[in-house]
Nucleic acid binder design. Structure first.
Lengths: 345, 345
DNA sequence: TTGAAAGCGCTAACAG
DNA sequence: CTGTTAGCGCTTTCAA
């Protein structure tokens, strides 16, 4: 029965070409071989429709040429931007991208970290929603290179890429002040997350900077999402009489805009609205949303580059290697939602 | 010097536990073993922090427990919805998800199909932008199970999941007619794609159904994207005086809405706007967009299920197996952008 | 119940 | 330049 069923392997090629499997391997990898050997092997491979088995290669070589990206929720435009950037860099370097949605479940994030040990991928980019002691421990003992998108405490030997949401929030608040707003409300995300705390810090700092006082009636913490933004804005409108609403992300801002529209308030004449992330959503609404770009794309790109760099044989991961950390600068993108206030206001 | 460096393997465990690697494997796989053997092995494994090497397992078992999803552009909310659904199903079944952005490049799609032969993943979900003869050929000779999200010609032995954009477009047009519109413009995507043709078909059929005549001045073909939608709407407004604009996806609709706002036209009082896909964008704008849900999530889910079913050892892929095809029913989601026309119009 | 050994498909060291 | 062979880490006969 000659050749057995199934996919062709180097053995089938060797048989067909009448050479050894070693020669097949050499030809296929472009290592030296006699002209007619090359020809025979190439012909046999083509006739058989041979495709090298990547799994066998990985086992032998110890590398899968796969990268893993784990983030809380692929439904969030911010993570989509990251995926896109990472995929682009990975593809260019000949790596495949493995996607993991953790649904913001801590145990899931830890499981992903541990699963680095199964050698399924050569490295991991992790975007945790929160960093617990368990995270730190898992990061210390990770079985392979990891890059974290987010803020890590000092002393954790892991590369990271950060957003500067303190500065970002400040950019937005100052811009609102510059365009004449004095009662700047703030719809923030959960208070117990790193980004939440940072944005709050930026908001307060910028207020002080502009000579405005912090008014608790003008601040709401909620979870992310359009509905939450609408509810939060409703509450603020009733209590605080703001002339601007600054939101911790674009979804919240879109929700706030909806609430304003529903009340017949004009944006930006009556109330200005600004968001954060400058996701694709910022341009979706009406009026287009002023937003602070925290560099999602840039962070994804840099994270992928850092990781690939660690995978580069020239720069092996050593316990003693100093962790590298870069911060993507925020950028204010001004659109119609924060035009000048109406003169009579 | 005793145990060598690197990750622990079954060999290190065997040494430590004082048993053979076969016993280690058995214990780790829950196959019968004496009580104290089990204990010894489990202790050694725990102490060493052993994680099974998935690559070696794959080589032995011939399955990677990975699925590949290839689509044109992860930036498009429709594909994000699919990724999300696929990831959920895959995760539940113990499969990882490999993501491939083809950037709508045909050669890239074909390369992905061919790469099925490298055994990197057990199956492929492909969402092609267009189906060429080369696609058909590659699908016929695919080295593993494939599910196509899109419309395949008869006779191609591949499972597929389709959207019914003909019926979907008709739903929207009839709804616009029902709410009193009579000059219903249509901003469609490229004419040379299957979805483009289908939507056009649905539009024409529904017009006829409603007793309206097809007016070329009310139809524009463009590519997808917010800007394109705005430009198209501008052109239509100048030439056709429509009282409704139906768009082939939500991005176009958002663009159209922007153009209307910019001209001071009210939505829906002066002009109604409807989109397609019912993506997250539909709820982002103001007013919230009426949109036809073509079942992106549903299609992703079904595609993943079909694929997993083919991977199930009980139902092996046979050349003679009849390809299965399901169609996700469209659903009209009515929101404020298509409220009744102003009585005086 | 256990151990020895074969083998998944490939690469690379070593002889010839 | 070419063939033989060992081995990547694991599962799975086959004997003992």
């Amino acid at each position: 029965m000659g050749t057995s069923t199934g996919q062709p392997t180097i053995v089938s090629i060797a048989e067909r070409a009448g050479v050894s499997i070693a020669s097949v391997s050499r030809v296929l990898n472009g290592v030296g071989a006699r002209r007619d050997t090359v020809l025979k092997v190439e012909r046999a491979a083509a006739e058989l429709g041979y495709v090298p088995n990547a799994v066998a290669r990985s086992l032998k070589g110890g590398r899968t040429r796969q990268l893993t990206f784990a983030m809380p929720d692929i439904g969030n435009p911010v993570y989509v931007a990251m995926v896109r950037a990472i995929q682009t860099v990975a593809k260019a370097a000949g790596y495949r991208l493995l996607l993991h949605s953790t649904d913001a479940v801590v145990d899931d994030e830890l499981a992903v970290l541990r699963s680095l040990g199964d050698r399924t991928s050569d490295g991991l980019i992790l975007c945790p929603i929160r960093i617990t002691d368990a995270h730190i421990e898992a990061l210390r003992t990770a079985a392979g290179p990891v890059v974290v998108i987010g803020s890590l405490p000092d002393g954790v030997p892991v590369d990271s890429v950060r957003a500067d949401s303190v500065a970002g929030a400040a950019l937005a608040v100052r811009h609102l002040h510059d365009t004449g707003r004095r009662r700047i409300a703030f719809v923030n995300g959960p208070a117990d997350t790193v980004p939440g705390r940072n944005r709050d810090e930026g908001y307060r700092a910028a207020l002080a900077d502009c000579g405005l006082v912090y008014d608790p009636d003008l601040v709401v913490h909620t979870d992310f999402g359009i509905e939450s933004g609408a509810e939060a804005a409703d509450r603020l409108l009733a209590e605080g009489r703001p002339d601007a609403v600054f939101c911790a992300n674009d979804q919240l801002a879109l929700g706030a805009a909806r609430a304003l529209h529903a009340r017949g308030l004009r944006i930006p004449e009556d109330v200005a609205v600004a968001g954060m992330d400058d996701s694709m959503l910022a341009q979706a609404g009406w009026p287009p949303l002023t937003s602070v770009d925290l560099g999602s794309t840039e962070r994804g790109r840099r994270a992928a580059e850092l990781l690939l760099n660690r995978l580069d044989p020239a720069e092996p991961v050593t316990e003693t290697a100093t962790p590298r950390s870069t911060t993507a600068p925020p950028r204010l993108v001004v659109r119609a939602s924060t035009g000048r206030a109406a003169p009579d206001s």
